[in-house]
């Protein structure tokens, strides 16, 4: 048994439009501490993906296809999407 499974969770991070172009891929899997918030995960993500420092500190984020806030708690298997400034219409 890997003891880390109790203390970390795995989330799928998706990138769209300009952010996908910036980091060079459309999704990565990220391990974060159990109980981590969106804010924590974004900070970790910025440290590990290519050009992560060029992503905003507080981007618009969706969790499981719903708009989310920096203090939204993440659960194992969640999809966290980083949304560049919206431009529909």
């Amino acid at each position: 048994m890997d003891p880390s499974t109790d203390t970390t969770i795995s989330i799928r991070c998706s990138f769209f439009a300009r952010y996908a172009e910036l980091v060079g891929c459309d999704h990565v899997t990220l391990d974060v501490p159990a109980g981590a918030t969106v804010g924590t995960a974004v900070a970790l993500l910025r440290g590990v993906v290519p050009n992560g420092d060029q992503l905003p500190d507080r981007p618009m984020v969706a969790v499981n296809q719903e708009h989310a806030l920096a203090d939204t708690k993440l659960r194992d298997g969640d999809e966290m999407a980083l949304l560049p400034p919206l431009a529909g219409g």
Binding site: A17, A62, P84, L86, A87, G88
Partner: peptide, 18 residues
Amino acid sequence: PIWKQEVLEGGATRWRGN
């Protein structure tokens, strides 16, 4: 969540927010 990228004559592109 929809995004737009301008396509200029000649083919260059640029992202554009509302």
